[in-house]
């Protein structure tokens, strides 16, 4: 099967030092692929490279077999990639409705955007009667919903999610994982960055473990789940 997204030997970083040193991974279509790793391992940096926000110094990125290494972000997004960025990044001074609409900014048909909005509001009914509220005034959990909803408004083929449940209460976290499962059931491919190892492996199909900018383990989720040695080594929470 052709992979949805693939990186080959990616090197990238911010100033002088490389944060990523030779990362290769594959995201299979229709599946949830997760990217695990301790704080500072380079997960978000890899996401930034995929999206053209941080340049790759070496290596290649392919999307549906087409090379997209270091092309402009909007041209990657246009090919059907939506992101729920680290820290949610809702537009604080846009209303909830505008935040959702901007997720569908590439869709020229108003009717289609409206359809998508109804779909999103059926997943997050809590957002429905908040249309006019400024996103910046919402709670962290609500902003997380809005950020996910905004990502879905792009009707993506591939959805990249970077730590959606950071800072949320356990109840919200559980809710978030359910939503991600639902997203997959709609046929959307997911690349998920998470800290909650156990719950993440529960819903994902395949996983990569990143440590100090390198892939140190990968395999099917059930395989990673049973690998308590690996979990103890990288997350200090093996069972």
């Amino acid at each position: 099967m052709e992979s949805m997204l693939e990186t080959q030997n990616i090197y990238a970083g911010y100033d002088e030092a490389d944060v990523l040193t030779g990362v290769s991974l594959k995201v299979q279509p229709g599946k949830i692929t997760c990217l695990l790793g301790a704080n500072g391992a380079g997960k978000s940096t890899l996401i930034r490279v995929l999206l053209g926000l941080t340049p790759a110094r070496k290596g290649q990125v392919f999307y549906q077999t087409k090379e997209i290494t270091n092309i402009e972000t909007h041209n990657i997004v246009r090919q059907g990639v939506s992101t729920i960025p680290e820290g949610r990044k809702v537009f604080p001074k846009l209303t909830v409705r505008e935040n959702l609409l901007i997720g569908a900014i590439l869709e020229k048909s108003k009717a289609k955007a409206q359809d998508r909005m109804e779909g999103v509001l059926s997943i997050f009914p809590q957002l429905a009667n908040r249309g006019q509220q400024l996103a910046g005034t919402m709670s962290g959990g609500e902003q997380a919903m809005l950020s996910i909803g905004r990502g879905l408004m792009g009707a993506p083929k591939l959805l990249i999610i970077d730590e959606p449940s950071l800072g949320l209460s356990p109840l919200f976290v559980k809710e978030n994982f359910k939503v991600i499962q639902k997203i997959k059931e709609r046929g959307i491919t997911v690349l998920l960055v998470e800290q909650n190892v156990k719950q993440t492996l529960e819903i994902s199909d395949y996983g990569y473990v990143l440590a100090q900018g390198q892939v140190v383990a990968h395999g099917t989720s059930s395989m990673l789940k049973s690998n308590s040695q690996m979990q103890a080594a990288y997350f200090g929470q093996g069972e």
Binding site: V77, P85, G103, G154
Partner: peptide
């Protein structure tokens, strides 16, 4: 408001 996130919207 946020040029980088705007780019992520396409």
């Amino acid at each position: 408001q946020d040029p980088e996130t705007a780019r992520l919207m396409g």
